[in-house]
Amino acid sequence: MKVSVLFFGATAEEAGTAKAEIDLEDGIGAETALTEILDRYPKLTASRDRSSLLFAVNQEYVRADETVNEGDELAVFTAVSGG
C-alpha cells in the first residue's frame, strides 16, 4: 500500500525532502512503519535517538496500538520548538 510521509525542519533537511510516497505492507503497525521509514532515511537517527523523534498518523500523534492504512498521511519530526 502507498502512504505519504511528511518531514519538517531538521527531519526535512536530513531526509532531503519534505514529502515522500512510500510502499508499506498493508495494515502494518505504526511502530513498524516508523522503523521502515527510518531504515530508508538513516540520517534521521544519525545524531539523535529514535525515541526523541515524534510520529504522527493523519495529523494526530500516534497511539501505541495504531495501524497504518492505504493513503494515510504519516509525519516524522523532532520535538517541537514553537512559541
Binding site: 523532532t78 517541537v80 520548538s81 514553537g82 512559541g83
Partner: peptide
C-alpha cells in the same frame, strides 16, 4: 503556552 511548546508541531 507551556502545552503549545510541548505539543503543537511548530519548529524554529
Amino acid at each position: 503556552i507551556k502545552e503549545l511548546k510541548r505539543t503543537v508541531p511548530i519548529w524554529k
